[in-house]
Computed example of a mutant assay.
Amino acid sequence: MSGGDAPPETGSGRPAVLDGADPSVIEEGGTAAQSEPSPYRKIIHVDMDAFYASVEQRDNPELRGKPVAVGGSAARGVVAAASYEARAFGVRSALPSVTAKRKCPDLIFVPPRFDVYRAVSAEIRAIFAEHTNLIEPLSLDEAYLDVTENHQGIAVATTIAELIRTRIKAVTGLNASAGISYNKFLAKIASDQNKPNGQFVITPRMGPAFVEALPVKKFHGVGPATAAKMQRLGIETGADLKAKPLSFLQQHFGKSGSWYYWIARGIDERPVEPDRPRKSVGAEDTFATDIFELEAARAELLPLAAKVWRCCEAHGIRGRTVTLKVKYADFQQITRSQTVAVPATDQSEIEAICFALLEQIFPVSKGIRLLGVTLSSLAETSDLGGGQLRLAI
């Protein structure tokens, strides 16, 4: 989990290829007989629609058709997920609960039930496994699937996506959207095009032009801060990004420059990686105004710690090492870490460590433009044994 400005890890930037795939099979109505074999993969990105909130509306008929937020309604609460009825009022995940209630006075807060969400996610994963073993979960509610070769031998990837979405609806009662393309970057973008309860295809013929027309702020891996920086550099669309040489992008964006260079051309060589071990969970935010005061910094850390803890709950993991990331106005970056004897058992313990680390750097002589929280030294809750774990600092 990230704050949105960190691009995915990338390789050398060569196109994603797999011998024997056929570009026609990711088009609507395409068949394997329509063209010669091509080197393109067939990737599906499945994304559940308002997953947590939809589960709550499914299980409680009184919530259906009403604006629902999963999360705490207390003053320090944060929205974990919002139904589409709530989104119409501008309620989004990570929004402070008090702000969400102000935007939507009739908003109904429901406490999260992560054990239920994990159980439903397991049902969905089983449906994926009916088609392919190449499944890369990104969270409980979304995953990449490589269906270039699949268990049923179905040539058309859009058909597989339709079958998966229909099966998810029948088994769970929930709606899913899907994006189909020849690489992960475009498949993820495609899954947002016809939400909710739809799917969209970006074919190899469409890919480059589609990316050129897309605003860079909609690129996966380009968060608000990076989008603002690109805008200052005259980069607002994929075409603007494509026009910049690799050296320019590396100069201004460091190692991320190569990633931006290739995705501007619709190229993403990352394979679908099943069961990739998670090494850390993190969240960060860049501020519109630099922070100089300790209390203001503490306030900004609260939603970051909440994001990290929600991810831990969702994935059934805990961690022992908390790292605070600080980036100053002059872009100098420092980190401070603390490792505890046993994993943190609730959000307040992560907050307490973050605050202790934060206090070490105050008072500051220059403003803070970014704060981040990362939890590492992870273990699954099932591996931790029974009993109440207590934090030893």
Rank of each mutant, 00 (worst) to 15 (best):
V216T: 07
K218D: 13
F219M: 04
G221T: 01
G221Y: 03
V222Q: 05
V222L: 03
V222H: 03
V222G: 12
G223I: 02
G223P: 06
P224Q: 10
P224N: 02
P224T: 07
A225P: 01
A225R: 11
A225K: 14
A227K: 06
A227G: 10
K229N: 02
K229Q: 09
M230D: 03
Q231V: 01
R232P: 00
R232L: 10
R232T: 12
L233P: 01
L233D: 04
G234I: 03
G234A: 03
E236F: 00
T237M: 06
G238H: 07
G238P: 03
A239R: 13
L241I: 11
L241F: 05
L241H: 11
L241V: 03
K242M: 04
K242N: 11
K244Q: 14
K244W: 01
P245S: 06
P245H: 05
P245R: 08
L246E: 12
F248E: 00
F248N: 02
F248C: 04
F248K: 01
L249R: 05
Q251L: 14
H252G: 02
F253G: 01
F253V: 07
G254Q: 12
S256A: 15
S258I: 10
W259C: 05
W259Y: 15
Y260P: 03
Y261C: 05
Y261H: 15
Y261N: 04
W262M: 12
A264E: 02
A264K: 06
R265Y: 00
R265E: 13
G266H: 10
I267S: 00
I267L: 15
I267G: 08
D268M: 07
R270N: 15
R270L: 10
R270C: 13
P271Q: 05
P271T: 07
P271S: 05
P271E: 14
E273L: 14
E273K: 13
E273Q: 13
P274C: 10
P274Y: 07
D275L: 10
R276M: 13
R276L: 15
P277V: 12
P277F: 09
P277C: 05
K279N: 07
K279Y: 06
K279S: 13
S280I: 09
S280W: 08
S280P: 03
S280R: 04
S280L: 08
G282K: 09
G282N: 10
G282L: 10
G282P: 00
A283D: 07
A283G: 08
A283S: 15
D285H: 14
F287N: 08
F287G: 09
A288T: 12
T289Q: 14
T289S: 13
D290M: 03
I291V: 15
I291K: 04
I291D: 01
I291L: 15
F292W: 14
F292V: 15
E293H: 12
E295T: 14
A297F: 07
R298Y: 13
R298C: 13
R298Q: 15
A299Y: 10
A299W: 05
L301E: 11
P303L: 12
L304I: 05
L304G: 07
K307I: 09
V308Y: 10
W309R: 11
W309D: 09
R310H: 12
E313V: 03
A314P: 00
A314N: 10
H315P: 00
G316H: 07
R318M: 14
G319F: 09
G319W: 08
T321K: 09
